[in-house]
Design a protein around this nucleic acid. Structure first.
Lengths: 207, 207
DNA sequence: AAGTGTGAATGCGTTCACAGCA
DNA sequence: TGCTGTGAACGCATTCACACTT
C-alpha cells in the first residue's frame, strides 16, 4: 500500500466521527462539501483524501453515509478491538484508564501499572492497578497491542524499552520527553505542556 | 513578524527543554548537531529553525546554552506567567488541574469550572471547583488568557463561545470535536482517541 | 444541475551544499 | 578546522480546475 500522509489519516478519523453523527440522524448521503464544512477543511481535500483508497461516491449525489463509514472503519482498523495497557497510575494515567472516549471506539484498557506501592492495588473503575513487576508476564498473557506511557519524563524511555521488548507494537507517549523505538514499532507523543507553549507563542507573536 | 510554521514552533519548545537539561548539567555550549540528536531531527533543521529569529551561534563553536535558552523563552513567550482556566472538572479536567507539568512552565491554573452541582465545591489540590455560572464574572476579575476545554464533545462549542465572549484569547480543546473560534482567538485541539486511531491505522497498514 | 475523481499547478517545509567566521 | 547561516534544490501536501457521471 502506498504511503499515506499522517495529516490525511487524521482527517479520515475526523470524517468518520462526522459520518457517525450523520448516521445517528438517519441521513442517507453526504457530500464532500458537507464533510468539509463540519471537519474544517475543503471539499477538494476531502475528495483527495478518499481517492487514495478508491472511489466511494456517486457523481452528482455524494457518498452513502453508512457505506463510507464502514469503509473508513475498515481502513483505519477500527472494525476490531485493540487491547491497551497504561503505564503509570498517577493523575494522567488514572484519568486515561477511566476515559470513556477510548472504550467506545474499540480500545479496551486491559491493564494499568505503577511502580509505586502506594498506588498498586487501587481500583480504577473495574481495573486494579498492578505492580510494574508483573508487566512482562501480563503482556505475554494478555497480548496488548498498544501501550500508553503516563510516567514522569525520566522514567519514559526505560519503560518504553521494556514494553517493546515484551512485544507491544504501538506506543502513545504522554510523558514530556521524546522517546525512541525500533523501526517495527509505531509511536506518537501527546505533549500537553508543549501545546500550551505553542499557544503562548501564538499569543505573543500576534502584533 | 514573518509567519513561522507550527512545526518550527513545536521544535523550538523541544530545543528549550533540551537546553534546560544541558543547563542543569552546567554545559556551556551546544552545537546544532547535539540539539538535533536529542530532539530527533537534523542539524540543518535546527539551524534553519533558529535562523528565522536571528543568529545566536558562534561559527566553529556552537550556541551558548544559557543565552539560547533565554532567547527561546523570550520568543515563545515563556518569560512571563500565563493564567489558565479549566472548563470541566471530570476525569480529564481534574487531572489537568493537578498536573505539575503546567505550573513549572509558567502556566498557572486560576480556576476550574463545572456545571454539575455534584462536582462544584470539590477541592483539587489548592483549587475549589466553581460553578460554571461564575465563569463570566471570574474571567472579568482574573483575566485568564488561556482556557482548557475538558467537557463532553457536544458541550464544547457553546462553552468556547462563552469564554471567547468573556475575553479569553486562547483555547486548548480536549473534547473530541472540532471547535470554531473568531479570527482574533487562537486554538488547538488535543484529541486522545484520534491519536489512538492514527496508531490503529499504522498497525493495520503495515504489510 | 450537482457533485465526484484526478492530473496539473502551487505553496511550503525540509534538505542540501557551501560560503563565511571564529 | 569546526560549525554556523542561508540561498537553492527538492519533495510532498494542498489547492485548482475541469472532464466525467448520475
Amino acid at each position: 500500500m502506498k504511503h499515506i500522509a499522517e495529516s490525511t489519516v487524521r482527517r479520515l478519523s475526523l470524517y468518520l466521527r462526522i459520518l457517525e453523527e450523520f448516521e445517528a440522524q438517519a441521513h442517507q448521503t453526504i457530500s464532500s462539501g458537507e464533510l468539509a464544512a463540519h471537519g474544517g477543511t475543503t471539499s477538494a481535500q476531502v475528495r483527495k483524501d478518499l481517492s487514495f483508497f478508491g472511489s466511494f461516491g456517486k457523481r452528482g449525489l455524494g457518498y452513502s453515509v453508512t457505506a463510507l463509514a464502514a469503509r473508513l472503519r475498515e481502513i483505519l482498523g477500527l472494525n476490531r478491538q485493540w487491547r491497551v495497557i497504561i503505564l503509570g497510575a498517577g493523575k494522567i494515567g488514572a484519568a486515561l484508564a477511566r476515559y470513556e472516549g477510548f472504550r467506545n471506539r474499540g480500545f479496551t484498557v486491559v491493564g494499568v501499572y505503577d511502580a509505586d506501592p502506594a498506588r498498586t492495588g487501587r481500583a480504577l473503575d473495574n481495573l486494579i492497578v498492578r505492580d510494574q513487576k508483573e508487566l512482562e508476564a501480563d503482556v505475554a498473557k494478555l497480548g496488548p497491542e498498544i501501550a500508553l506511557i503516563a510516567v514522569p519524563a525520566e522514567a519514559a524511555q526505560p519503560l518504553v524499552d521494556r514494553v517493546v521488548k515484551a512485544g507491544v507494537r504501538a506506543i502513545l507517549n504522554f510523558a514530556p520527553a521524546p522517546v525512541h523505538v525500533p523501526r517495527h514499532v509505531v509511536h506518537r507523543s501527546v505533549d500537553m505542556a508543549l501545546e500550551l507553549e505553542i499557544l503562548s507563542y501564538a499569543l505573543v507573536s500576534r502584533r
